[in-house]
């Protein structure tokens, strides 16, 4: 893991197959751990995993040996139900053993159904009640500014989550405070528990909304690691405004029968479904 920042943007193709493999391995763990737990949210975990892989394996400055390192970049998973994606990324980064992933949601496990700061190494903030993460991230970004530290703060938002009012209070405040050390990523997978976001409570036009709230807005394919890396670099270099990356994603990405499926927002795969998912994902993790 990079202790010091790496120049990942110099050659975006370098190691690209490596992190593509990492993302695929993370996907395998996600379906396995949710199957083992018997409950959880595969859809939104699979849509967010490429974003997390890009961050933890290329972009962020962090140290799995020292999870509370003062100068580390921070990540707030505001859509806390995608915890399996974060846990598998952390395990693959070396924060804890991969086998521990199979304890997800079990009594006594460090891996709670939603992220818990004081339980799991590498988790920077407890989340789960939606709409709160962006405010936390602003607090972290302001803390960095007060301490004259150069760490950056990343915050992953859900699109269903964006119906929460607090998120827009925070959107207003982030540009007011000009926290350009903050980068939000909207996992725009178009689906929430009850149906398509645009049918339940439309979020569009989301790009101009954030623009109007004073953000620098970038839109990418959220499964294209190269596009993601380019966007993260743009966010790092853009000064005076917070950046939001609208990452267009597919819920359940990587497993055919979970892609775009409402059913797998919050349902564990059965034994047969797991078998098929792992076959599709390939590899040998």
């Amino acid at each position: 893991m990079p202790l010091e920042k790496i120049d990942y943007w110099q050659d975006l193709d370098a190691n690209l197959p490596d992190i593509q493999n990492t993302a695929r391995e993370a996907r395998r763990w996600i379906v396995k751990m949710i199957h083992e737990a018997g409950s959880g949210h595969p859809g939104g975990s699979l849509s967010a995993v490429d974003i997390l892989t890009a961050l933890y394996f290329r972009v962020m400055r962090h140290d799995p040996e020292n999870p509370l390192w003062e100068d580390r970049d921070r990540l707030v998973l505001s859509k806390g139900h995608s915890a399996p994606a974060l846990y598998s990324t952390l395990a693959l980064s070396g924060y804890f053993e991969k086998d521990e992933l199979l304890t997800l949601r079990k009594l006594g496990s460090r891996l709670q159904g939603h992220p818990s700061k004081n339980k799991t190494p590498g988790i920077d903030m407890s989340t789960g009640s939606l709409g709160q993460g962006l405010s936390i991230a602003i607090g972290m970004a302001l803390g960095a500014r007060l301490d004259r530290k150069d760490y950056r703060v990343y915050c992953i938002l859900g699109d269903g989550e964006s119906q929460e009012g607090q998120l827009w209070e925070a959107a207003m405040a982030a540009s007011h405070y000009k926290v350009d050390n903050l980068c939000a990523i909207l996992d725009r997978n178009q689906l929430q528990i009850d149906g398509p976001t645009e049918k339940i409570m439309s979020l569009e036009p989301v790009f101009p909304k954030f623009k109007a709230f004073g953000w620098h807005v970038v839109e990418v394919n959220g499964h294209d690691l190269k596009e993601l890396l380019r966007a993260f670099h743009e966010a790092e270099t853009y000064k005076g405004k917070p950046t939001i990356i609208i990452a267009n994603t597919i819920k359940g990405k990587g497993v055919s029968f979970m892609e775009g499926s409402l059913k797998f927002h919050g349902k564990a795969p059965s034994k047969e479904e797991l078998k098929q998912a792992l076959e599709e994902l390939g590899g040998d993790a």
Binding site: D124, M125, S135, I136, I138, G139, L142, G143, E169, M172
Partner: peptide, 22 residues
């Protein structure tokens, strides 16, 4: 930090600041 009439956001920002040792 006067966050305006936005108490929920205030508590969140407060929490974020606290994570940085404030």
């Amino acid at each position: 930090f006067n966050v305006g009439v936005a108490e929920q956001n205030m508590m969140g920002i407060a929490a974020g600041l606290a994570t940085t040792g404030k």
